[in-house]
């Protein structure tokens, strides 16, 4: 996905002189050819995440369209106030792109984990919040949003899926339909686990890459179902539940630090977000119709 991020910014910069890249000493080698092709538009600014956001906001004020990029917890949780005030309140449409969330750097411990980014940024007025799951989604959504006039958050993953989805900004995808009255909703790169879990189960499966604005019309279509939200972060279930009167369940993160090292797959397995764990949650709901 990061490679796609680089390829799309390179393509955008080729036709739009306002595009620039501001890095926090991450993904630097990958952007060397962008740097060569776009002198004056590439800044490896330093390990100073607060300033990355503020400086990018100031650049935006002069007409530029920068993409700011580093590791998710440092750019979103550490710099939340800069995003809130310098991007959202000031109405400067900075593009914020991160890597590492939720558990791509499982081995680094909780300092490098990030699962609140989508939830907290979704709460800021004017923000667009995206969790693309595939390279195609990254490309389409970056192109759709980079000059939207609003600050945009795009969370990348090192574990993309390759599922064909609706690439339109702000729209979800119905990947399969069942008759049981149970709908599973999910977002981002966890999708393959959800698909494997539901492979032979009689459920609807709905997928999102855009958490704000939420595709409320699509959620409404399933308002009479019991909805199980499966997500390896916070934010999606809250977005879905803004549609009033739903019956939802959340199968996701526990209230604890998942600091067991290993890989993202180890973490997902331990908290029930591998395919068997998700399948268990879905079948439990299917088998308790009164729930």
């Amino acid at each position: 996905m990061r490679r796609q991020f680089k390829e799309t910014t390179t393509a955008l910069a080729a036709t739009d002189p306002r595009v620039a890249v501001v890095l926090g000493d991450v993904s630097v080698y990958m952007f060397m050819d962008f740097h060569r092709a776009n002198p004056g538009k590439f800044y490896n600014m330093g390990i100073c995440e607060n300033s990355l956001i503020s400086v990018a906001a100031g650049m935006t004020a002069t007409g530029m369209r920068p993409f700011v990029h580093t590791i998710a917890p440092f750019l979103t949780e550490r710099s939340l106030e800069q995003i809130k005030l310098d991007c959202a309140y000031n109405q400067w449409p900075v593009n914020i792109v991160t890597c590492g969330a939720s558990f791509d750097y499982a081995w680094d411990g909780a300092t490098h984990h990030c699962y609140t980014d989508l939830a907290i940024l979704r709460l800021l007025p004017n923000m667009e919040v995206l969790q693309p799951g595939s390279r195609r989604e990254v490309d389409a959504l970056m192109r759709a949003t980079y000059d939207s006039g609003k600050p945009t958050y795009i969370r990348l993953s090192d574990h993309p899926h390759d599922v064909e989805t609706n690439l339109e900004f702000g729209k979800g995808t119905v990947l399969r339909e069942g008759k049981s009255g149970v709908t599973v909703m999910t977002a981002g790169p966890i999708l393959p686990n959800v698909m494997a879990a539901c492979e032979d189960l009689d459920v609807n499966l709905v997928y999102f890459h855009t958490l704000k604005p939420m595709d409320r019309a699509l959620v409404e279509r399933f308002r009479h179902d019991r909805i199980l939200v499966v997500h390896d972060a916070f934010g999606l279930q809250e977005a879905i539940n803004e549609v009033p009167g739903l019956r939802t369940w959340y199968h996701g993160l526990p209230d604890q630090f998942c600091a067991w090292y290993g890989t993202v797959h180890d973490i997902r397995a331990r908290i029930g977000l591998d395919a068997p764990g998700i399948r268990k949650a879905v079948t439990t709901l299917l088998e308790t119709p009164s729930a």
């Binding site: 620039a20 004056g40 538009k41 800044y43 607060n50 300033s51 956001i53 503020s54 400086v55 990018a56 906001a57 100031g58 650049m59 935006t60 004020a61 002069t62 007409g63 530029m64 106030e81 800069q82 005030l85 310098d86 000031n90």
Partner: peptide
């Protein structure tokens, strides 16, 4: 406090690029 100076740095950089 501590936001405006970073914004000003970005503005100065953007003006130079332009």
């Amino acid at each position: 406090l501590g936001h405006g100076i970073g914004i000003a740095v970005g503005m100065a950089l953007g003006e130079r690029v332009a």
